[in-house]
Amino acid sequence: SPTVSMDELEHLAQNISKSHMETCQYLQEELQQSTWQTFLQDEVECYQSKPKEVMWQLCAVKITEAIQYVVEFAKRIDGFMELCQNDQIVLLKAGSLEVVFIRMCRAFDTQNNTVYFDGKYAGPEVFKVLGCDDLITSAYDFAKSMCSLHLSEDELALFSAFILLSSDRSWLQEKSKVEKLQQKTQLALQHMLQKHQRGEEILTKLICKVSTLRGLCSRHTETLSAFRAVYPDIVRAHFPPLYKELFG
């Protein structure tokens, strides 16, 4: 592992936390104030009675909005913009949705298994018409398990950066440069967890999430291609261009 001073780790942790807070889309206070606002039964039914393709499009728009914040987050991480453009794109293509899934736990209410979506808190039944119950259930389960770790915003920020800077993504041109950045981020995360007197097992649990996140994202890709096979024109004409670039 690279030799990094404590000062450097502190500095990186501060930079990543600040970047996260500046780009987190919703402040914790906003989200907490809305938890009592869950969709009423007739509103749930309204989502359920939308045509499948309309609901898909709405979700694609929401995912794209969230991803734009993740792109901003990446740009503010020290060292990210110093990577070659190919690698910036490779990392965002592979990791931006993973960070959206991580961020989902901030907007998740474990008490009633709902997530902030389209202005209120929504249970998994809201997404029924999408026809991908497995993916939705897995995303909710993932958010729930992330919540059970009770990470602070700083820890969440560092974990998000650690995921974004994954050096094992295919097609990286300067793999070792990414590797060094990721290692430094991991050290900063470790340092932060120690400082917060969290047990060693938290880091192990977080590292285990890497494969869960990859599974979630590949399931999203599979679900999208199944949808696209039936509705190619809808995707072509109505899905956000950034979404198509990332997942096309």
Partner: peptide
Amino acid sequence: KEKHKILHQLLQNSTS
């Protein structure tokens, strides 16, 4: 580059 036009653009926009 053409394939990731929007991502390129987002990366090039200065952070606000």
